[in-house]
């Protein structure tokens, strides 16, 4: 401690590269979009006009925004629950494997290394309404698959692709969490007569709660922001806006529609939303976490 107080410059110097990166790639753009949210500007930046809160009013008054909000809520819930539930199941199973454990772990971690756009395209090919392998398989059991036209199927497609991507990340953390649980605890419980389910819900799950909490925060952020590439490469937000999440709408308005003010206002709202979500998670959920 005393060393740091004497060399007050050194820690800052060591942090400097990281701080510069954060300032340039996060704070600067964030400040810029905060400013633009209060202006109306043409695409080329030839002129701009201060409009106060008008951009926010337009966004909040548009039914399209609330529709995207609903889609995002449903989508987030499905992806977070699916990606965490499946990852936990797989981690518990992989934790028990005695032979070839490494192989299973590598295979289950693999999807995370695939770029979201590539993963999206792979799923798109498999589910292509005309040429897809899975489309033909589904047709054989009497399901007419056309994600280009059926809103439910389109949502299912992006949910599956997103879960597949995020599951590996969760898997790695759950597996590490499981391996940190001392075997002696579980053995003691087994000697006391606790069955596998009792052991899982009474010991394993509570001890995993810090991991699960961390993953919940990370998954919320993932669903809100990083599923963009998956959606952009598969459904483009369609059909009929069934897969247009808040981030996708923001992109469409900003980069396709070139409404910089409106999309900046949306990004400010999204920042607030993520802040509130994280606050709630830390304030209320973290109390139930046993470290």
């Amino acid at each position: 401690m005393t060393t740091f107080e004497r060399h007050s410059l050194t820690p800052w110097l060591l942090l400097a590269p990281q701080l510069v990166v954060v300032a340039i790639f996060f704070f600067w753009p964030a400040a810029e979009s905060l400013r633009q949210a209060f202006y109306v500007q043409d695409a080329f930046g030839l002129g701009e006009r201060f409009v106060g809160l008008a951009n926010f009013q337009h966004v909040l008054a548009s039914p399209g925004y609330w529709h995207a909000f609903g889609v995002t809520a449903l989508f987030s819930l499905l992806v977070a629950a699916g990606a965490m539930g499946l990852a936990l199941l797989l981690a518990v199973l992989a934790d028990r494997v005695l032979h070839g454990a490494r192989l299973y772990r590598v295979l289950l971690t693999w999807p995370y290394a695939v770029a979201p756009a590539v993963a999206g395209l792979l799923w798109l090919f498999m589910f292509d309404p005309v040429l897809g392998v899975l489309t033909h398989a589904l047709a054989a059991i009497g399901v007419h698959w056309d994600a280009q036209l059926d809103p439910g199927q389109a949502l299912a497609l992006v949910v599956i692709a997103s879960i597949w991507q995020q599951m590996s990340y969760n898997f790695v953390f759950f597996l590490a969490g499981l391996q940190m649980i001392p075997a002696s605890l579980l053995e003691a419980a087994a000697i006391d007569g606790a069955g596998p389910f009792r052991r899982f819900f009474g010991i394993t799950l509570p001890l995993l709660s810090p991991t699960a909490f961390f993953l919940l925060v990370m998954n919320s952020v993932y669903v809100l922001f990083e599923t963009f590439a998956t959606i952009d490469s598969t459904t483009l937000g369609g059909p009929g806006g069934a897969t247009r999440t808040l981030v996708y709408k923001l992109y469409e308005d900003g980069f396709v529609g070139r409404d910089l003010g409106g999309s900046s206002a949306q990004s400010v709202l999204l920042m607030i939303l993520v802040g509130v979500l994280t606050f709630i998670q830390f304030r209320y959920l973290e109390r139930r976490v046993a470290y």
């Binding site: 809103p151 369609g238 059909p239 009929g240 396709v256 409404d259």
Partner: peptide
């Protein structure tokens, strides 16, 4: 904003066609 309008139209046509 015609590129954006085309997206809107495509989206609405999808609703009519499904």
């Amino acid at each position: 904003n015609m590129p954006q309008i085309r997206n809107i139209i495509a989206e609405q046509l999808e609703k009519a066609f499904n």
